[in-house]
Amino acid sequence: MMKVHRNSKGFTLIELLIVIAIIGVLAAIAIPAYTGYTKKAKVGEIIHALGAIKSAVSVYYSEAGATTDATTADLIRTTYGVDVPTGRASFQYTATSREIQATSKITGVTGTMTLTGSTDFKTWTWDGTMDKAYIPKN
């Protein structure tokens, strides 16, 4: 038969405090890292949309020989045939400077991201006022 220990009363207060302290330290490390990853994922959606607009503008230029301004997502859709999501950023294309610009609507990520095409739209460069950690390398 099993012996029952009557003096066993569970965890001591110090053991519980140590566990709470460990959980607090882990949370202090994990929460900022998690928010950074979620911001990068949201910025990734903007980069993806800029890439779609870039492809559409390049095709339009190769077929028409010129491009036209599109200052809103609706104009980008009707002119270039690309449906861009507007939840994370507002988009516009300026034909004279060959710039596709996205202005962030993400909380904690401010500024713009710009994708500029060469005169023949074969090469593109990234720039902008957004934190450089979010802007792709050229």
Rank of each mutant, 00 (worst) to 15 (best):
G36Q: 07
L75A: 14
V4S: 11
G36K: 09
G44L: 01
Y37M: 10
D83E: 14
K39I: 03
E15V: 04
T86K: 10
D83G: 09
A95H: 12
S55G: 13
A133T: 06
D120G: 13
I53L: 02
A52R: 04
E63F: 10
W126Y: 08
I76A: 10
G108N: 12
W124T: 00
A21L: 08
G36D: 06
A52C: 03
V57Q: 14
K132D: 00
K132N: 01
Y34E: 00
S97F: 05
I23Y: 01
T68N: 15
L13C: 03
A41M: 06
P32K: 03
I29K: 05
K54S: 00
P85W: 05
T35S: 05
K137L: 10
Y61H: 14
I106D: 06
S55M: 03
E63M: 12
T114S: 08
D127F: 08
K137F: 06
S62P: 08
A73N: 12
Y61Q: 14
T68D: 11
H5S: 10
M130L: 09
L17D: 03
I47S: 00
T12N: 05
S104A: 04
G81K: 15
G117C: 14
T112W: 10
E99H: 05
T96D: 14
V82I: 14
R77Q: 14
G111D: 05
K105V: 02
A64F: 13
H48L: 00
S118Y: 09
V19Q: 04
V57P: 06
A66Q: 13
I53N: 01
V59D: 15
G81F: 15
T112A: 12
G128N: 10
G111S: 07
T116G: 10
D74Y: 10
S62A: 13
H48M: 02
M113E: 07
Y37W: 11
T78R: 13
